[in-house]
């Protein structure tokens, strides 16, 4: 456990050194710009759009970090041949894979947490420009903690995407890993269509095949409650718990796959 922790801390340090957290500057500029400019364009909907933009940016920036760092976690070590040095130390291969994964997820947690604080700050700034009695009628007050449900589920989705990227990076090249991960991410958002494929095709085989894909591919739309929280609509605790449990299970499957492949890989 301690070894995994040390590897994770190193991954986090490396991502800081690689200026991954610079995306926070871009996020800050985006949010400040949105808070200032949107009022001119949106007929009073700047607050709603600021929340949409904040949650969307968290998800999108996180996706790029998860994919582009995730695909290099293992393959970079192999490319640089530093893998030989690492494996000659008393480290199990599974510890290396898990450490790398935990390190990147920790980077994402830090990243998304800072963005969430930034989003709340901009929400308060926008609300501050209106009379309190006006703000009291809004669906989502500036201190509404329900936003955190969306933030939490974004993090779970990013953790799944990181696991996908890591899984592919254990046996494929970085470019192919990125392509596979993005493809799965897109497919993961089409899951409802796969589920209802029987309504648009005649062939029972095609319908069954699509239904099979629906069960096997990651259902990433499960983690998307941005549209609900931005209108202050309820997101039940049971739904969140099931989504988190599903995410953790899927991550476990991918990590077991990644560890198995990486353990059998020959680096000669």
């Amino acid at each position: 456990m301690r070894t995994i922790g040390r590897i994770a801390v190193n991954v986090f340090r490396e991502s800081v050194r690689d200026k991954v957290l610079y995306n926070l500057v871009l996020f800050a500029i985006l949010m400040i710009g949105a808070g200032y400019l949107l009022g001119q364009l949106t007929a009073g909907q700047d607050y709603k759009i600021v929340i949409d933009l904040g949650l969307g940016a968290m998800s999108l920036f996180g996706l790029f970090i998860a994919v582009f760092i995730g695909i290099g976690l293992v393959s970079k070590e192999v490319e640089r041949r530093s893998i030989y040095g690492l494996l000659s130390k008393p480290i199990h291969r599974y510890q290396l894979v898990l450490g790398k994964y935990v390190g990147l997820v920790f980077t994402l947690v830090v990243n998304v947490s800072i963005m969430a604080i930034g989003l709340y700050a901009v929400m308060h700034y926008v609300a501050w420009q209106f009379p309190p009695e006006f703000v009291a009628t809004w669906d989502v007050p500036p201190s509404d903690l329900r936003i955190l449900k969306a933030v939490g589920l974004i993090l779970v989705e990013l953790s799944v995407v990181t696991a996908i990227a890591l899984f592919f990076s254990t046996f494929s090249t970085p470019i192919l890993s990125a392509a596979f991960t993005f493809a799965l991410w897109i497919a993961g958002h089409f899951s409802t269509d796969l589920r209802n494929f029987d309504q648009v095709v005649q062939s029972p085989f095609a319908a069954q095949f699509a239904r099979g894909l629906y069960w096997v591919l990651p259902n990433l739309s499960t983690f998307d409650v941005k549209g609900q929280v931005v209108h202050g609509r309820p997101v039940e605790a049971g739904f969140v718990l099931l989504a988190v449990a599903y995410g953790l299970t899927y991550i476990a499957v991918l990590l077991i796959g990644a560890v198995t492949i990486f353990s059998r890989r020959d680096f000669k």
């Binding site: 007929a43 933009l53 949650l55 998800s59 941005k226 931005v230």
Partner: peptide, 16 residues
Amino acid sequence: LGYRSLAADVYWIRAI
């Protein structure tokens, strides 16, 4: 994809 609400904002701004 997962950005329907944001896409709706874009169309809302276009409508205005």
